[in-house]
């Protein structure tokens, strides 16, 4: 079965590519004409303002943001947010540095897929760091890695991202300038811009349809 399927694939590959070449009247192996440089527009802004701008945009989307000066100020905020809740935290070193993994409500240190998934299914809150944040759109950028699995920011109904201000970028274009080829770094990069939402029924906005309906950003 697989063999024949593979056989068919090889065949279809030639058929499809052949049809493309025929339609374009191009021979195999021809290189394209050169392409102009990518258009990336990075505003020149006072970096100090990024955090404020991020906060404004993040809140406009329905998120809530906190700014603290020191890592040690993070844990009290989280304790507050986590009252009466159970949370799963990622293995990002920054979370440990902020003392989050030590909080009693927080489970962390997962290395096994099934265990992680089971914990995420029942947790009220998922806590992650963020690799970057985009000021212009209030976006969190998450690169999945052994420290930062995908499901923590996805399965629990609440997502809290804690990250240092140094990860703040101006916009999408700056992210693409910093990471010209994200595939070299990670198998999955996700841009998160606001809580999960839908407007599929009567165009009425509802939050938290599949992903978290509440998101928080704590910027150190």
């Amino acid at each position: 079965m697989v063999e024949s399927a593979r056989g068919a694939q090889v065949n279809s590959r030639e058929v499809v590519l052949g049809n493309v070449r025929k339609a374009l009247d191009r021979a195999a192996g021809l290189l394209p004409t050169t392409l102009t440089a990518p258009r990336l527009k990075i505003p020149i802004l006072d970096r100090g303002r990024y955090t404020t701008l991020f906060g404004q945009n993040f809140e406009k989307l329905g998120g809530k943001s906190f700014f603290v000066r020191e890592p040690r100020e993070v844990a009290p905020i989280l304790s507050e947010l986590l009252q009466g809740k159970r949370a799963v935290a990622s293995n990002a070193p920054f979370l440990a540095a902020c003392g989050i993994t030590g909080l009693p409500q927080v489970q962390s240190g997962f290395t096994d897929r099934e265990a992680l998934r089971a914990a995420c299914v029942t947790a009220d809150v998922g806590i992650t760091s963020a690799d970057y944040a985009l000021a212009e759109t209030g976006t969190l950028v998450m690169l999945s890695s052994p420290e930062e699995p995908r499901l923590i920011s996805l399965l629990p109904p609440v997502h809290i991202a804690v990250f240092p201000q140094s990860r703040m970028l101006a916009n999408l274009d700056e992210l693409l300038a910093v990471l010209p080829n994200p595939a070299e770094q990670t198998s999955s990069m996700v841009l998160i811009t606001g809580p999960s939402r839908t407007a599929d029924i009567e165009q009425i906005l509802v939050r938290g349809v599949h992903g978290p309906g509440e998101i928080y950003a704590v910027i150190v």
Partner: peptide
């Protein structure tokens, strides 16, 4: 930007817990 933009390249890599 839409809420989620996923940029996916290949299966999970060495050491990744999920994916």
């Amino acid at each position: 930007l839409t809420v989620y933009t996923s940029f996916l390249s290949g299966p999970r890599r060495n050491g990744e817990i999920d994916g």
